[in-house]
């Protein structure tokens, strides 16, 4: 029996979906290790502890609340020191984080401090004998690796969407976690530039509408935005060609060198389907492609393809989606 420690990530004072998914992964690992407790660390400005009940409702037995000015924003050094210290002092089997901007920054810091083996971006986990065995897609999703980690604790970061947040009937309890001072010189955040408001992040959205050069001009990206609005829960992505041309910010880029996404529905608008782009979205559950060239490689992976001019087809699809959602199907 062994307990598992989770870093429950927040942004702007709210828990992120990946935090609950990390709790699910931790629950799996604790159960596979003979049943232990899941302890989730939530950190932020004073008041962040109010989110503890959400973590308990998703399977955290104990919520460790680190509140204070030193945890405002993403306090990488204080978080690394505090999480590693807790992991060391309480004999955890594993520390689990999300493979997000925060988690990919924090995981290696914690692993180095603990001198613990680490695996990033995992999609499944198991325990085999005394070892933790994980699945990790590498080579930009082209090769699936099974990795074996020997030793205790281990550090794991989970791929967004790979573990489904699950409810729990157990009542968790909250404890306060004191901050541990950072030992390295710190990085100062001078400004955070928020992206488009009112849309879910590409990693969280169940639907992604993505645009490519086939839209012909930056202003036609409005059609992609409109279709995303029609779905209501959609994020907007773009190809590398589009972000290179400055039609959309670099952070919107989906592909091998951008974000790797796997939503329930991916709609590719005017995207030819270069290998670099396919690597970032081919694990989406359902793919729709609209492109005027019927030979475009995107049609090889699209569950539903429409050959046609995106400037005509997309507005009509937007209207049809609005209609379908209104009539409640």
């Amino acid at each position: 029996m062994a307990n598992v420690l989770v870093f429950a990530e927040t942004r702007n004072g709210e828990l992120r979906k990946i935090a609950l998914e990390a709790v699910t992964a931790a629950r799996q690992l604790a159960d596979a290790s003979g049943g232990g407790e899941v302890h989730a660390i939530i950190a932020g400005a004073v008041g962040i502890g109010d989110k503890s009940s959400q973590l308990a409702a998703h399977g955290a037995d104990v919520v460790l609340v680190a509140e204070g000015a030193e945890f405002t924003g993403y306090a990488r050094e204080s978080l690394g020191a505090t999480i590693a210290d807790r992991a060391r002092s309480d004999g955890y089997r594993a520390v689990i984080l999300g493979f997000s901007a925060q988690g990919r920054d924090l995981g290696p810091r914690i692993a180095a401090r603990l001198d613990a083996p680490i695996a990033s971006d995992i999609t499944a986990l198991a325990v085999d004998g005394g070892n933790v065995v994980v699945t990790h897609p590498g080579y930009a999703n082209k090769v699936i690796m099974t990795l074996v980690l020997t030793g205790t604790p281990v550090v794991l970061s989970v791929r967004p969407g790979a573990f489904t947040a699950a409810g729990s009937q157990k009542a968790g309890r909250a404890e306060s976690l004191p901050a541990v001072a950072a030992t390295t010189a710190t990085v100062t955040v001078t400004e955070v530039k928020e992206g488009a408001k009112g849309r879910p992040d590409l990693g969280d959205a169940p639907v992604i509408i993505s645009g490519g050069r086939g839209l012909k001009a930056a202003e036609n990206f409005k059609l992609v935005e409109d279709l995303a609005d029609a779905f209501g829960n959609a994020a907007v992505g773009a190809t590398r060609a589009v972000t290179d041309d400055g039609w959309r910010p670099h952070s919107d880029q989906i592909g091998q060198t951008g974000r790797l996404v796997s939503p329930q529905l991916y709609v590719a608008v005017g995207i030819s389907g270069a290998i670099q782009h396919l690597a970032g979205m081919r694990t989406s559950r359902t793919i729709v492609a609209i492109n005027k060239d019927k030979e475009a490689p995107i049609f090889k992976v699209a569950d539903y393809g429409i050959v046609g001019d995106v400037l005509e087809v997309v507005p009509a699809l937007t209207a049809a989606v609005r209609e379908a959602r209104k009539s409640g199907h």
């Binding site: 065995v133 793919i287 569950d303």
Partner: peptide
């Protein structure tokens, strides 16, 4: 302390279809 036990190619997506 981290070793590769196995590498596999991901399952192929079913062939695309133009509707």
């Amino acid at each position: 302390r981290v070793t590769v036990q196995k590498m596999e190619l991901p399952p192929e997506r079913p062939a695309g279809r133009i509707i």
